[in-house]
């Protein structure tokens, strides 16, 4: 589904990704962990197509398409979804209008007609229930005045609306209370299928109790320096990153 080969990316001549290799197969859940500033969010931004970063080397194929050649909107329409670490507030753009536009753009891409008003309302209602998001939130402007946790829930709500093939969840768990964490994880798990894959970026083992990964990777200084099964997350929780840094420096 996703094959990243020797990916390098920089911003203002500062190289942040320094040769990432990663393969995600359909149905798999991959966790990416790593210290602050390692490049986890940069990797997700580059995959989603943020033009702020310049890709200097490497290739990414997504369902046999050259991902790096697609515009951000086409990547989304091809089924890539990024749950932002810091979702932005867009005052004046209503959640309803935003979601309707997004859903219709996806449909247009697939050659389908725009969604009818009643179908759309039903879709909204169903997905709101799924992520247990407060109805009032979807009557407001995108993320405007949302609490940190509400913003994260809203990301998962959008994911549920768009049903991506590959979801990248960038620290979706941080800032969530214990109940919200379970709800968000549930939302992710309900979308799980043999065709859909997930990349979870997190600092905490707790989320991985709910969303159980097939692989855990450690990103450090722009490279994946260790990959293993889910037990690696437990080990990191216990020992921190020092031993990995040390291994890497040697």
């Amino acid at each position: 589904m996703l094959v990243i080969k020797d990916l390098h990316a920089k911003i203002e001549d500062k190289e942040i990704l320094r040769g990432i290799n990663l393969e995600v197969k359909p149905g798999e859940v991959h966790a990416i962990m790593g210290p602050n500033g390692a490049g986890k969010s940069t990797l997700s931004s580059v995959l989603a197509g943020n033009e702020k970063f310049e890709v200097s080397e490497g290739s990414v194929s997504f369902n046999d398409k050259e991902l790096l050649e697609l515009s951000p909107e086409d990547r989304a329409r091809e089924g890539l979804f990024l749950s932002f670490q810091y979702p932005i507030e867009i005052p004046g753009v209503s959640m309803v209008n935003f979601m309707r536009t997004a859903v219709n753009e996806h449909r247009k891409y697939r050659g389908e007609d725009p969604i009818s008003a009643s179908e759309f309302l039903k879709l909204m209602r169903d997905k709101k229930k799924l992520v247990e998001i407060d109805s009032n939130l979807t009557n407001r402007s995108v993320n405007e005045g949302f609490s940190g946790g509400e913003k994260k829930k809203n990301e998962i709500f959008q994911m549920a609306m768009l049903e991506p093939k590959l979801a990248i969840l960038d620290e979706t768990d941080s800032g969530l209370d214990i109940d919200a964490l379970r709800v968000v994880a549930n939302g992710v798990n309900k979308l799980k299928s043999p065709e859909r894959s997930t990349i979870v970026i997190t600092h905490y083992q707790r989320l991985l109790d709910y969303i159980v990964p097939d692989y855990v990777h450690v990103l450090y200084k722009g490279r994946i320096v260790k990959s293993a099964g889910k037990e690696l997350a437990l080990e990191l929780e216990e020992k921190g990153y020092d031993w990995i840094k040390k291994e890497f420096e040697d």
Binding site: A48, G49, N50, E51, K52, S71, P72, E73, R75, A76, R77, L82, F84, P87, I88, I90, V93, N97, F98, T101, A102, E105, H106, Y109, V142, Q158, L162
Partner: peptide
């Protein structure tokens, strides 16, 4: 904000209008 909209599949022109 534009990137956020595009990351949800909304094209540049539509994003500009929004």
């Amino acid at each position: 904000a534009m990137f956020y909209l595009r990351a949800r599949g909304i094209n540049k022109e539509e994003g500009r209008i929004l």
